[in-house]
């Protein structure tokens, strides 16, 4: 469904993403792993239009979507989350999820100013759906609390829910369990399984090796911006180069 061809991103003299290529099959969880500084987040940022690429291309179902801005990608069914939370702290949890439904809601100036019936009707319908989503991952109780007062774990989940609200076919999750405790990590892993069961494709950028090995259908390993290896979890686990890179990275 998604194909990355020779994607490259440079910052000054540093090539953070160096000639990366891989394909993501529909309905798969495709993980991208690698030691710190391997360029994983830069890869996500380049795919999702936060950075402009310096070479290569990104294809979605045969269409070139290289350097499409983040907001337009949503309308093509691609949504992302952030490694460092991007949550609106001054809004409630529910409002953050409602923001995720934005593409389905009318923002016409006149319906808004005159409070059209359809606008109110949609708002109520989507509020119910938002509450339902929040219920699914067990943070419904926090729906009316301001996001800035809540714990990191809840906000991490909230960000995934917000992304889900956009109705994506492809979800880019940038380190969704970084900083979470084992219990929360397990909950998020479970959530990702449910998402994929709903036929959403997931690109998972992650550090947590156990979760990646458990969840992924396919894994791409990055090292110093380059692709080091690609394969099934089993293949990756036994790849001598990968083992070397990880041990080397830890030394």
């Amino acid at each position: 469904m998604l194909e990355i061809r020779n994607l490259t991103k440079r910052f000054g003299g540093l090539t953070a993403v160096d000639d990366i290529s891989f394909r993501v099959a529909k309905g798969h969880i495709h993980a991208v792993i690698g030691p710190n500084g391997a360029g994983k987040t830069t890869l996500v940022n380049t795919i999702s239009g936060v950075y402009r690429s310096d070479g290569g291309s990104v294809w979605l179902d045969g269409a070139d979507i290289t350097d499409t801005p983040t907001d337009q990608l949503v309308y093509r069914g691609i949504c992302r989350t952030f490694q460092n939370l991007e949550i609106c702290g001054g809004m409630t949890v529910l409002e953050n999820v409602m923001l995720g439904f934005d593409r389905y809601l009318s923002k016409g100036l006149w319906p808004t100013l005159l409070r059209s019936r359809r606008l109110l009707e949609d708002e109520r319908r989507y509020t119910e759906r938002a509450m339902h989503l929040l219920g699914l991952i067990g943070i419904r109780d926090y729906a009316h609390q301001e996001a800035r007062n809540l714990s990191y774990g809840i906000l991490k989940k909230l960000e995934i829910v917000r992304a889900l609200a956009t109705g994506p076919e492809l979800l880019l999750l940038d380190e969704p369990v970084a900083g979470l405790n084992p219990r929360e990590t397990a909950e998020v892993a479970e959530l990702i399984r449910t998402i994929v069961a709903d036929e959403v494709t997931v690109i998972l950028i992650e550090h947590d090796m156990r979760m990646v090995m458990d969840l992924s259908d396919r894994i791409t390993v990055m090292h110093f911006g380059k692709k080091l290896a690609e394969g099934t979890p089993e293949e990756i686990r036994n790849d001598p180069e990968v083992i070397e890179a990880y041990l080397g990275g830890r030394r």
Partner: peptide
């Protein structure tokens, strides 16, 4: 209101 807190958040959901 979302613009006030983070411009990336609304952009990431299609705004």
């Amino acid at each position: 209101r979302s613009l006030h807190d983070s411009e990336r958040a609304p952009a990431s959901v299609g705004v």
